[in-house]
Amino acid sequence: MKIALSGLNNTDNPAPGIGVAKGLSGHELVGLSYDPNEPGIYQRIFERIFLMPYPSLGFEELHERLAYIKEKSGIEMVWPNLDAELPLYIKHQEQLHEMGLTTFLPTLEQFAMREKAKLATLCEELGILHPQTYMANSIEDVVDITRRIGFPLMIKGNYYKAYRANTLEEAIEHSYTIANEWGFPLLVQQIVEGIELNYAGVADGKLYGGFCIKKLTTTDIGKVWSAVTIRNEAMEALAHRFVEHTRWRGAFELEAIATNEGIYLIEINPRFPAWIGFSVDIGLNLPRMALALAMHETVEPKFSYPEQKMYVRYVDETVCDYAEFTKLLATKEL
């Protein structure tokens, strides 16, 4: 199986692609990148690399590029891993299938149900707690909302970035930072104090596999740097409930806060997290399970994994010819 996947950034703001690739070792892999500086390009994981048009250019550009990549490299499956590109791939799954490209993605309806702005409704349907969250379409909105919910609070982008604000000045500054990069709307969310837990899973109408972690250390923007596997019955029950309710298809990540009052669901990502390589090392290869489901193979559900295994991300170095970088820059492929 030749699979093209995106999300090759492997800095302290890592994308899921490298972790997914770890789970798919043995398959021929092609890397899809938006930036020649992404370290994953040079890690000798991918047999070919192609630069991609930004999702904002629309499906026509994407279709044309994928057709070219398929012709050049013979890819059979496309596996997007980035929040900003997922809507385009999800919306046009049928066209991708018509091109002969397999995908394993949720439907547009499933995708929409877990959007940050609609999460409160989904949480109500699931009977799970959710912090108060308001959408802001301007800085004025942000200021109004802060008056309503008080400090501290979180300022979140619709796709990326989330900052804690302790004062109005910080809230405004963070709002500008996110809006300048990603635009409006922003989300202003009440902070729930507790212990953050994360659950990564794979589903196809029912839950086939998943595991739970607690972050031990994070980068400045909250990305996992080290973590430990845990078993939390409430999180496992939530994962089952979420999948059964939405009939979810594909990978997902639940981000939650455990408090004395119960679990607060704060976010559902419609893809694997960047630490998904952890699943491979604990014998629960979720990317491989997702691939098998995509291929309509028989998959036995698996939820057993060792507790108290520690994940540690670290920095590595590699050397390549500068000509690789310039070739990618000039020709958009390697």
């Binding site: 212990i195 596997t229 845990i230 939390n232 455990a258």
Partner: peptide
């Protein structure tokens, strides 16, 4: 002491 459901 380790609390397995929360990882603390």
């Amino acid at each position: 002491g380790f609390v397995p459901s929360l990882g603390i």
